[in-house]
Computed example of a mutant assay.
Amino acid sequence: MEDLLKNHMFAAHAIAAAGSVTLGTAVTHPLDTLKTLIQVGAGSGNPLVAAQVLGRIQSITGNLGLYYGFGWSTLGRISGLAARFGVYELLTAFYKDGREDNYVHVSEALLAGIAAGAMEALISTPFELFKLRAQVTAAVHLPPSSSATANQVNTPVIARFLRGYTLDKKAWDHTIEFLSPLSNKHPNVACSLKEYPWMLTGSGRPPAVHEVKRPISIISLEGWNALWRGLRPSIVRDSVFGGVFFSGWQFLHIGMLEQKANEMNPPPRSIEEIGPVSPLAASLAAGVSGSIAAAASHCFDTAKSRSQCTVLPKYVSMERRLLRWKQPGYWIERASGIHPSDRNYLFRGIWLRMARSGLASFTIVGTYFLAVDHIVPK
């Protein structure tokens, strides 16, 4: 009977956690979409603002475009946060083992948060790739193309890598015109050129990112390794975020406990006698910690987003491995996955991410406490 009750309690906590994460993602996904498009749309000119991005999304896909990639984002958040809090609880349980008080130091919360963030990045990176590709589609105008035209210009290579992709006929005609002065000994030079992967688009360039958004297209064109593209900046970002988030949350939690202890008469002799803080106070502390952690890790989030927004076919990756290609930049940029060309864009969209992380943390923690209070038996 006791084991059955424990299983029911575990299921109730799991349902409450999944529901709170889903609600938090639903509330903050429009902010995440605007933040992502500002990051990947950064150029040498004037920086994009949220109003410009919002207007473009509404003109192309409507308000529904703000929720493109919501399913992938929800799956990634549920699995990633489960790993983050699971690893954190395991490590802090090890720290608290043998102590009289159920107490974790701020430095211990920092170290546990760094390890928990690294584990979260390993699990959530593929979901973030699919989410980002879907979000980019929300701001891209797709020209209409008939299936008959597509079947006429599609080649076996294109059909194998990208099902349903339509060849850029104008770029292809320009390429053939450029090659026309060369000796034409082959009976059909144009069709032979189409068999080469680097001529997929007819211009020698890989397809646009909004054309490679489905998992099957990403895997067939870019390979399985593409699912973890941007892993290095993701690990650094989530490690920094997890360390700052949990250490900040623990610091605020200790301060609230001390304030509560000062108001008690007689003074408590241990932390257990103080009791837990209110759910609202815990939610506010989580929201503040989430905003600070987002600000501390935002530059790595931008590097991750811009890396995942690049289509890198398998043959290019293979050539880089064979040529032992090294990423340019300083050693700290290479270690953290920041490309030198992105140096001027690393803090684009920081306020949106701070608002999104703070609101999501507040919503998730508050909803979780509220759900547990109603569905978990006393």
Rank of each mutant, 00 (worst) to 15 (best):
R229G: 12
V87W: 08
H8K: 04
V40W: 10
A282F: 05
N184V: 08
I15M: 13
G41E: 10
N151C: 08
P313N: 00
H298A: 03
A159Q: 15
P340W: 07
L193D: 00
R269V: 07
R321P: 00
D301I: 13
V236E: 00
G43R: 06
F127K: 04
A112K: 03
L5P: 03
G76D: 00
L122T: 02
S145E: 14
H374W: 15
L323G: 02
D173S: 12
E273Y: 06
A360L: 14
L352H: 06
K35S: 13
L110W: 11
D97T: 01
G98L: 02
I15Q: 09
A14R: 00
L91Q: 04
A226S: 12
A208R: 14
E319C: 07
A116S: 15
S220E: 11
A295N: 07
S44V: 08
V209G: 05
Q52C: 10
I271A: 02
N46C: 09
P181R: 05
S192D: 13
K169I: 12
N262I: 05
A82P: 04
I332H: 10
L75H: 07
F10D: 09
S234I: 01
G43A: 08
T310M: 15
A109Y: 04
D373Y: 08
W325G: 00
P279F: 13
S147G: 12
F241N: 05
S20T: 01
F85M: 11
A138W: 10
E2L: 12
I216R: 12
A150I: 15
T137N: 10
L66Q: 03
R84H: 15
Y315A: 10
K185Y: 10
F241V: 04
E263T: 11
A115Q: 06
I292Q: 01
V240I: 14
I78H: 00
C299V: 12
A148S: 14
N344K: 11
G45F: 04
P30S: 00
P126L: 02
G19E: 03
H141W: 14
H186L: 13
V365L: 15
S59M: 12
E177Q: 13
I114E: 02
A121W: 09
A293G: 07
G358I: 01
S317Y: 10
A11E: 07
M354R: 01
I219G: 01
S180K: 14
S341G: 08
A293H: 02
K185V: 13
G358T: 01
A14D: 02
M256H: 09
K314Q: 15
R229D: 14
T25E: 15
F241S: 09
P187Y: 07
P47K: 02
P340T: 07
V240E: 00
E177I: 08
V240T: 08
A295W: 13
R269K: 10
L37S: 14
E89V: 13
